[in-house]
Structures are given as structure tokens and as C-alpha cells.
Amino acid sequence: MNLRDLKYLVALADLRHFGKAADACFVSQPTLSTQIRKLEDELGVALVERAPRKVMLTAAGQDVVLRARRIVAEVEQMKESARRSRDPESGSMRLGVFPTLGPYLLPH
């Protein structure tokens, strides 16, 4: 099991379509399908129910997707933390200003 497989599973859960999930992950549909099948074999449980033109998550699949989302989010936060430590002045800053005052206080 690797992070890429978990990202594929999350994309499939979000889009509910193998072709669309493959496009979102920038891989071919057979590649995505094979990796999901490999993940199912490794876990020993079916994660998705495959029907013509329909993909549904099994109960185990829903649990795995929930955990996969957390794992992927944690890894992204870890990467962001490393980027910030490398260059602390990079990143984004949000500033809240009333829309009526913004044009007078902030440059365009």
C-alpha cells in the first residue's frame, strides 16, 4: 500500500467513476482500476462495488476512504510544514477587510 493508491481511492470515492477518477489522477483508467484492485487484495476486502456505469463504496470502503483522506491530508500538511521551514517567508497570507474600506486601505 502506498500514498498514490490512497489518492486514487479518494478520487474514486469523490467522483464515483473510474474514468473521471483516472483523469483527475492523470493516469489511464486500467491503471487506476488495477491499483484499486491491488489495494483490495492487500486489505483482503472489497472496497467498491462495480456495476455498469455506477461505482459504490462498500461499508469497508467507506471506512478506508475516511482513513485515507486523513492520511493524505496529514502528508500534505507535512509537506507544507517542510516548505515553510525551508523558506519561512513564503506561502499565503489572508487579510480581512470590509469591502467598502478595502479600496481606500489596500492597493489594487
Rank of each mutant, 00 (worst) to 15 (best):
D87N: 14
L12K: 01
V45P: 00
S33W: 11
D41P: 08
R4I: 14
D23S: 07
R84V: 15
G61L: 02
L6W: 00
N2T: 15
E40C: 07
A24C: 06
D23K: 04
F18N: 01
M78A: 15
V55D: 00
A21C: 04
F18Y: 08
V64N: 01
Q35S: 14
E74H: 04
D87W: 08
T31R: 15
P99H: 08
R84H: 13
G61F: 01
D14M: 04
K20A: 09
I71E: 03
S85A: 13
L39P: 04
P99D: 10
G44D: 04
R69V: 11
A24S: 11
D63I: 05
A11W: 03
L47R: 02
A73L: 09
P88S: 09
P107Q: 10
R67L: 06
E76V: 10
T31H: 15
A59R: 14
D63E: 10
T34K: 15
L101M: 14
D23P: 00
V75W: 06
K20Y: 04
A51Y: 12
N2Y: 06
S90Y: 03
P99K: 12
V97I: 12
R70M: 11
S81T: 12
K38C: 10
M93S: 13
P103L: 11
E40V: 05
V10W: 00
K7D: 08
P30L: 13
D5C: 05
R70H: 08
R53W: 01
L3H: 05
E49T: 14
E40N: 10
